[in-house]
Write a protein that binds this DNA or RNA. Structure first.
Lengths: 251, 251
DNA sequence: CAAATAGTGTCTCTGAGACAGTATTGG
DNA sequence: CCAATACTGTCTCAGAGACACTATTTG
């Protein structure tokens, strides 16, 4: 509470409607070059048995960000990644059949969710491929919409922040990074050009990626082992790739 | 309420904390090539006498968008423009000294706010230049932060939507449009290049701007009269300008 | 050896930016 | 005439994209 202001005596708390406020968290990760989302199966009504985004009620003594971190941990056992950004609020009447609920949706991205442990409100918690989840599941509440909005948000953030590196862990190969862009932008990227943009374009002494000197052993299918890189200082200030514009129709 | 789900009998409404939910609206407009924001002076505590963003309590039977439209009209008499986008939620404990309030912030942009009428909760309502408001006013609650976030949001939206045309009315001169970009991006734009991008780059038969054949009389200071244009169909799908990247330091 | 994946070198061409110059108004 | 604003034409150069080629691994 700010100094110099306090609730006047006799302030009528019932003069405006009150709502439950929840947070819902969309955790995205890359696994086998495929975009994955963390979902929980609801143990209780409403939507008992349906898959849903992890989330729950905000408490009065915590910020929205804190509520998101806490609920994610309680429901799935997952430690919230650094990049945790609020991206939308949903408050349509009837979006929760129980009562009036306004939810604030968060997006976070991680290279590795770690151990997943279903909490007390969930029968099960696991990663789903986003393609499968969208095609085959009917998510609880308006979570289909929230998930779609989250993915659009992530695609935009790739171009304007260092979100890409949040998908890939402290060291990564160029191919891994490329697959992040390809999955989220639904565009094929030319590997040689992708490399060049990372290496050549960085503002002066800073660089987008720095070699570690180490290499990742090649897969059982063969192929040259890829070199490992870490994110350089330039990434924070100026993300390297611009999203391709839609191609013009032929003249 | 969705079909197939209903509140179970005896559902305990008090099992989770409840909040007031408000909406706050940032209305931006261009006047004399300067970015302006619509503010109200608070009639009641808390922050009585301080300038604040228009806004107020959401009702249970309306969506967040509807609440924003209604509150804007009630507090300022301004009819909500088409582009009305939610951009953030604020819920820190104590951000409102009265009670627990979560607010959802909206951004809208308009060429002309029309008649401004202070509502019952406001002593006064008027446009402020953003530069002045940021430098000289102490806005109520966390509205300083909300305003700053709104401007950043608008600058980004210019690059990814047709927001620019929302600033300038149905017909406009190229100079007017240019000043929108210059104010929000805080970048000088070369007028000849700006024109070319609007005319040459549109995807096939669509165009970014269409000439109306009319001209705007020149100002008392002289100068050639500017031709008037209207927004073309291409703008919706692919905004014409990309925000300039920060310049590299010299080698 | 072939298949698979990683990485290099080069060419082309679009389009962003700089800027010189022309057009049309008011005073 | 000059000042002010609108508009046109032209040059340059960075950088996005296409793609041929080389390198290093598994089997």
């Amino acid at each position: 509470m700010r100094p110099g202001h306090h609730a006047p005596d006799g302030y009528d708390q019932s003069s405006f409607p009150r709502f439950a406020v929840t947070v819902d968290i969309v955790i995205l990760t890359m696994f086998q070059a495929t975009l994955q989302v963390l979902l929980v199966r609801r143990r209780a009504d409403p939507y008992k048995g349906a898959w849903a985004l992890p989330g729950g009620f905000k408490r009065p003594d915590e910020t929205l960000d804190e509520a998101a971190i806490r609920e994610l941990r309680e429901e799935t056992g997952v430690k919230a990644p650094k990049h945790l950004t609020q991206f939308a609020a949903y408050g349509d009447p009837g979006r929760d059949p129980r009562t009036n609920v306004v939810t604030v949706a968060y997006l976070a991205v991680t290279p590795d969710v770690g151990q997943i442990l279903a909490g007390t409100d969930a029968d099960e918690a696991r990663l789903w491929s986003v393609a499968e989840a969208v095609a085959e599941l009917e998510l609880a509440f308006d979570h289909d919409q929230i998930l779609a909005d989250a993915i659009e948000q992530a695609a935009r953030q790739l171009e304007q922040s260092d979100l890409a590196t949040a998908f890939v862990g402290p060291t990564f190969t160029i191919s891994e990074l490329k697959s992040v862009y390809e999955e989220l932008w639904e565009e094929e990227i030319d590997a040689p050009n992708f490399r060049r943009q990372l290496f050549v374009e960085a503002p002066s002494p800073a660089s987008y990626v720095a070699p570690t000197g180490e290499r990742r052993p090649s897969s059982p299918k063969g192929g040259r082992p890829a070199e490992l890189y870490r994110a350089g200082p330039a990434w924070k200030t100026e993300p390297p790739l611009r999203r391709p514009r839609k191609r013009r129709p032929e003249k």
